[in-house]
C-alpha cells in the first residue's frame, strides 16, 4: 500500500513535469486464462466471450474497453438476475483489478459482449480479442470458438 502511494506520487510528479508516464501497472502483468466463446448462428446475433483476467503485478489495473476485428461493438457486459428471477444485461463500465486478484468473465455474470459481428463465429476457429487498459496498455488474446452448447473452456 505504501509503495502504491509512493509510486502514485511519483507518477503525479512526473506528469506535472511534462514527462510521459509509462503505464505503471503494465499489461505485461495481466494474465488471461481459459478464454472461450460460443459459435454464432450467422452474424445477426451478438456473441459472448468468457475468460479469467488476473493481475499478476503489484499495482491495480483497470480494464476500460475491448477491441476485435470480429465485432464492431465489443463491450464488457454484466448479466444480473434479481430476486424475482428476472435476468437483464448492461454495460459493466470500467473494471479495476487489484494486485494479485482475478476477475472472471463467466456465463451469467460478466462477459465480453460482441455486438455487430463482422463475420460468423465458427466452431473450431479462434479470434483475437484485445483488452484495453487505463494508461494505454493492451493485451491481446486468441479466443477459441467452441460449440453453441458449450458450457465452459473445457467443452
Amino acid at each position: 500500500m505504501k509503495k502504491y502511494i509512493l509510486t502514485s506520487t511519483l507518477a503525479a510528479l512526473l506528469t506535472l513535469g511534462g514527462l510521459s508516464v509509462p503505464a505503471l501497472a503494465g499489461p505485461e502483468d495481466v494474465v488471461v486464462e481459459n478464454a472461450w466463446s460460443r459459435a454464432s448462428i450467422g452474424m445477426n446475433r451478438p456473441g459472448a466471450a468468457y475468460m479469467t483476467i488476473r493481475n499478476a503485478g503489484d499495482e491495480p489495473v483497470t480494464l476500460i474497453g475491448l477491441k476485435t476485428p470480429l465485432a464492431m461493438m465489443p463491450e464488457i457486459h454484466e448479466t444480473k438476475t434479481n430476486a424475482e428471477g428476472v435476468s437483464s444485461m448492461s454495460p459493466a463500465g470500467e473494471i479495476t483489478i487489484a494486485p494479485g486478484e482475478s476477475v472472471a468473465l463467466e456465463p451469467g455474470g460478466l462477459h465480453a459482449m460482441l455486438m455487430r459481428l463482422q463475420e460468423p463465429m465458427t466452431e473450431g476457429e479462434t479470434f483475437p480479442l484485445t483488452l484495453l487498459f487505463d494508461g494505454g496498455g493492451e493485451v491481446t488474446v486468441d479466443v477459441p470458438i467452441l460449440g453453441i452448447a458449450a458450457r465452459g473452456p473445457q467443452d
Partner: peptide, 17 residues
C-alpha cells in the same frame, strides 16, 4: 430468446446437461 448471448445458451446447455 435466440438472440440472447449469455443467459439463454447457458440455460439451454445446463438443461442439456
Amino acid at each position: 430468446f435466440t438472440y440472447c448471448p449469455d443467459v439463454c445458451p447457458t440455460t439451454l446447455s445446463d438443461i442439456s446437461g
